[in-house]
Amino acid sequence: MNWQAVVRRQAVGAWRDEQIVQAYSLFNATVRDALATFEQTLVEHARLYDTIWDPIGYAEPRIDVLLRKALPHALAGFLDRAATQLGAISPEFEELAEALRQSYILTLPQATRTELPPAPTTAVSDIILPQTSPHARQTNPSDDRWAITKGVEKIAGSAGHVVKRGAEIVQKQADMIADTLQDKAGLRDRVRNAAQRRIASHWMGEVGDPLPVLAQLVRIIDTTTVTARMTTL
């Protein structure tokens, strides 16, 4: 029994352990940052339509975009460091380390609905201002209904004068109402849950088809480990 080879195999095993745990940590930190950005967007921009009818359609493309933006650079650095550490175990692993550094392939998920039109700032942005009815002008001035209509027009006219300031107030109130509704009814949680499910199934999960990105990375580390251990036999 060549116990020196056992030393190297254990070192490779320790390398694998270190890389996988670090990969978990790296993904968790990246996802945490992405979720923080996602949360901000959710609170500021998500419409009632998104939270009620299409939480998945809202969450998935945004999560994918955020992680596609953050992960590639982090993963390149991670694999570069991993390769350096593998090569440092023994010169016999240098070639394998170089292959790890140069030729890894990771497929990043991209939700099919990738167009992200800028969301309106509020769900009630199309405010219809009161207008003077043309029909009212044709009514008989002696008609009591005219006076009422006239009164309404007057009020409407007043509203027209303050429309600019009024619209702002209405907007704020609408935002508050939408916020309250979305929070109290747990509508935003639907989107948050959709984001979590996307992360679990496509980014940080163990299994899936296509294979989640973290599982792809672990597979690369495992394959490298098995190959390195085989060279010591």
Partner: peptide, 22 residues
């Protein structure tokens, strides 16, 4: 020989209810 810390950690994490990215 092929069982490492990563495998035990993975097995433990499968039981964890904490949300990812937290």
């Amino acid at each position: 020989g092929g069982i490492g810390l990563a495998d035990l950690v993975r097995s433990s994490l499968a039981q964890v209810s904490a949300e990812l990215g937290t």
